[in-house]
Design a binder for these strands. Structure first.
Lengths: 203, 203, 203, 203
DNA sequence: CATGAATGAGGGTTCATTCAT
DNA sequence: GATGAATGAACCCTCATTCAT
């Protein structure tokens, strides 16, 4: 588990990363924000690598939360997927720092020790997405001529790029709206073509 | 123009970034690779910011090259798009460092001064892709119920994620093959549904 | 306020400046004298500019001290002026580095940010001298056909040059003695001409 | 003798010193101003110390020129002294960099090797002034109860401080005017008291 | 003969970390 | 148990100078 202070540190770290990139995450910056001395952080995390690890865990939980929330609605797979995307967008809008959820690779950049953790995190997210899409296929809501793994890829890739652009443009636009539009198009793309049966029977 | 030495430095810088992330790009690392002293680099680039700028220009040229090569074949828009993706994949396979072409945002991270340059670069790439897809639509090769801008987004997003995964997995797999598969699926997705007219008139 | 360490650093900095000029004030030199590492100084002064600022304040205090000491004697203005000059000389003899008190302009040289501070310091010193001379005039001890501002100028100019010469000659001579002689002459110059009374009574 | 190029370099060096202090005199800055490469300067001066030496000689000549010009007028000693001060002021007004003439000590600061040269230069100037004042005394134009050496000191000290203040205040005021005022007061101070004759004849 | 390239020494500064207190 | 002080390593960068070409 995490102490309250550890959580605070992680959240502030994410904020620093969001504001100044990975290079902005320094003990000095943290201590300024907390008004605590630098060595004090070693009481909560034995080293900076552990802070990063804590961040990864934290992000994992956020991501899981988004999926679970969508899951609990009990709607169909495609709607759950929509809820996931919109859930992310809402989280990011409320707290910009959380965009890191989608980019664990950037946090592990250059740090060999975190590589495993990053891969695990990305895999988990990928699996969750893939499961959703597999379900969608089973329910006839998603085209089956493309593998669910690929769909997961396309969806996640689009979302990541959308968020990246949003950040580069200074986060001035309405992310939730943008993702809603994205979903609108993704839904068209995912949807299977009109079943032939319908038209035949209509005669 | 660029001197030979400037080009060498840029290419070695890209290699360092590919291997150790942006934090790996230091004068110390460069000087070790070149076997020359650190101050020597200031003869070629007045500051590190200028190295980064040089990198951005270089990447721009690489990207442009890939598009032009595809353009010159004179094949249809969809095939040109394929050639672009495959062209990237081949470049990246030959020289891993060039993956940066797709991620100018990572190079500009945290460096306010480069932000403009990054945005311009990404815009240019986006426009090139969008033009290709607009052409594809005009030729009836691409679904028109989704805007070309969105298609460009989906394609670029997928490619970026594919490359990211490839790098995270240690570049051990065959990137060209992976991108070929990606294209295979993207082609299905992009292709317009069977024309309704045929079936209707057949009755 | 100043910590003990800050005061030590300021004093050692002044010593370095006195020995090797402004270019002698480097973190390397400081760290050699203190036997601590270079980054350690950043615990006490956030940047070198702040060291210089600290020096300026310190010098201000020294200068003020000399004036106050003279003031407290309660003797007449001319004698107070003498005490100021002699006070300076004694301070400088004890601690050569303190000659900087008279030359704040050299410390601010080329550092735009310190310019204001330098001007303020020099103004304060000028005002103190001028006040003294105005008092002297009021008491009939100083010629009134020259403005007190000018007298302050002449006195300070002479003192500065005397100290400069002393330093250039290797500080081998007796500064207190030299300033005593200087004062001897300045006193003659400042003194108003023989009172008219003489002439009147001679009739 | 000096080549034309050497003279140019010296003059530009003085300009750099005037603008940015001694730290502004670098080969880089010089080469930028001349549009020549840095090693090119070694053709004209074997080392930076030699540039400084050249500067000292140059300043000596300027100073000598001012004195000779005053000498050639053939007016009395006091007027010649006035011409010297005004001559300096005019030179400095035309070319700010020449103020260095009065401050050879600043150029030699911290450079052991130049110390001798600096002392010689200052001595020469002092002697020229002293001679002038000795003449003035002989002609009954200058008070004799203060040694000519001291007078030279007072005059030079005042002038140096005047110029220093002018520079610190951004050289915005009219230096010639200021020195004229200074001379006005110095003339009063130098002048011997009302001739005794008056009193004697009154009997 | 002028220059491009390079260099060793040194500049100020930041970072993650340790340790006595 | 939190902090002030310190540190080694590394950062980007500038300087005077040299030397092959």
């Amino acid at each position: 588990m995490r102490t309250q202070r550890q959580t605070q540190i992680i959240e502030e770290s994410l904020a620093l990363i969001a504001e100044h990139g990975m290079e902005g995450l320094t003990y000095r910056n943290l201590s300024e924000r907390f008004g605590i001395s630098m060595p004090a952080f070693y009481r909560h995390f034995p080293s900076k690598a552990d802070v990063l690890l804590g961040i990864m865990e934290y992000l994992d939980e956020v991501s899981l939360g988004v999926f679970l929330t969508a899951q609990e609605t009990g709607v169909n797979a495609l709607d759950r997927l929509r809820l996931v995307l919109m859930g992310y967008a809402q989280q990011f809008s409320k707290n910009t720092a959380l965009t890191a959820v989608l980019f664990p690779d950037l946090i592990g950049e250059g740090r060999r020790e975190l590589q495993d953790c990053v891969l695990r995190h990305m895999d988990e997210n990928r699996v969750r997405l893939t499961d959703l899409l597999t379900d969608g296929m089973a329910a006839g809501l998603v085209r089956t001529d493309v593998s669910p793994e690929r769909w997961a890829f396309v969806v996640m890739g689009s979302l990541r790029l959308e968020v990246t652009q949003w950040r580069l443009n200074g986060k001035k636009t309405d992310l939730v709206g943008r993702v809603a539009f994205l979903w609108n198009d993704l839904a068209k793309i995912l949807k299977p073509p009109e079943p032939q049966r319908d038209r035949l029977t209509s005669h």
